[in-house]
């Protein structure tokens, strides 16, 4: 029973921080709130018995992605004062509207899940891990990861490099 309250508390925190990150107009604060969302997700993943994924989530999503966001934000100019004033008038509207939308959608999804007759196995009942490691079934995914990382390296090389040259060419 206690475990259930922990799950529900974590899920509530997840939704609250996501709403805050979505309505925040200061991008740097939104990025930090997003890191908090990642942190909550980490705890949820621990609670759901996937510790390796949780560690990945913590180091990559809460760590690396936040670093990328903050460096992008610091490399770019924030909104000008007029734009910010313009946005501020909308902030109130957004801050009220989104929780309402969340509640309405939550209610709607609740109604929809009433028809679900899927019977989950008892919480915590875990089948025995297969011998030989979990990646045995997923070697093609690993190949895909290799390709996507190679593509990402080329992307960084092509899109960040010689910006000055191209500006001159144009």
């Amino acid at each position: 029973m206690d475990l259930m309250y922990v799950h529900i508390l974590l899920l509530a925190l997840l939704v609250i921080f996501s709403v805050l990150a979505a309505v925040n107009l200061r991008i740097i604060r939104a990025a930090i709130l997003l890191a908090t969302v990642s942190l909550v997700t980490t705890f949820i993943l621990f609670a759901l018995k996937t510790p390796l994924a949780a560690i990945f989530e913590l180091s990559v999503c809460a760590g690396l992605i936040t670093v990328i966001f903050i460096s992008v934000i610091s490399l770019t100019n924030p909104l000008t004062r007029e734009e910010r004033a313009d946005e501020k008038t909308k902030m109130f509207k957004r801050a009220v509207l989104l929780p309402v939308i969340v509640l309405v959608c939550g209610g709607a999804f609740y109604m929809l899940t009433k028809g679900v007759d899927f019977i989950p196995v008892a919480a915590g009942a875990v089948s025995k891990p297969e011998q030989g490691g979990m990646w045995n079934m997923r070697q093609l995914d690993l190949v895909g990861q290799v390709i996507i990382i190679l593509a990402g390296v080329f992307g960084v090389a092509a899109l960040f490099k010689d910006n000055k040259d191209d500006g001159g060419e144009k």
Binding site: C61, I65, E130, M134, R138, D141, G152, G155
Partner: peptide, 25 residues
Amino acid sequence: YFNGKPQIVEPLIITMIVVEVVILT
């Protein structure tokens, strides 16, 4: 978790995170 097979989804989540980082970059 609710299927009783958390070890099987673990690699899926890790793969997803890797893909996500590349897209974000």
